[in-house]
Amino acid sequence: MAEVQVPVKSESSVFSFGKTERRLITDPISDNNPITVQVLGVCSALAVTTLVSKALVMGIAVMLVTAFSNYFTSLLREYIPKSVRMIVQLVIIAFLVTVVELILKAVNYPIWKELSVFIGLIITNCILMGRLEAYAMANKPWKSFLDGIGNGLGYGVILVIIAVIRELAGKGSLMDYKIIGPTSEYALNTMEISWLSWYAPNNLAILSPAAMFIIAIIIWVQRSRNPKLVDIS
């Protein structure tokens, strides 16, 4: 089926969604993940992953910014003067980040307050500049948009995985829903279930070094399963 599609969508259909387009999205989620393989955008991955809700909001924000910055840059790619390329790209990113921040502040003020400077730091998230340089400056807008969505998703997925581990291990809750802990507020009250009485929330998971360890373990697992990704150095 894919073979039939390929010639059709070459130039005529701008918003087609075939096999190549699907790969643009699925690749960054696994084999070409921005965090674990390309090592981009780690900074904010650590600070915002103490709670799943924060990580989700951050993931969505980054996805929107990557997608639209890719799209706009790709639209403008033939008009951007080479000498001021960097600044133009940064302004596009900073503009979108400001828009996202203003909207978040209106939609969910407490989360905005919690994320504080880390929303602004999306600007220097290397994923954005990396994708603009590597993809959007050389490809069509629609494909760039999908590439942005894919990379944003790949980033968000890792963020949420880290946050799930950290919140569950550190606070015994997920999305603020209390699951396991030593009081009656939790769904699994470890004080009452005898075989769980040894369990205590591990505060280390909430501290930022824990995020480093979790990313390291994710990399470890991923590279053991896919030896192609192993560093030669």
Binding site: P81, S83, V84, V88, V91, F95, V99, L102
Partner: peptide
């Protein structure tokens, strides 16, 4: 490739658009 006046025009137009959209949103 691009003349200096084009670069200046480009940055000016972009700055104005960006500032305008943002201030409207704010």
């Amino acid at each position: 490739m691009f003349s200096t006046s084009y670069i200046i025009k480009f940055t000016l137009v972009m700055t104005i658009i960006v500032a305008l959209v943002l201030s409207l949103l704010v």
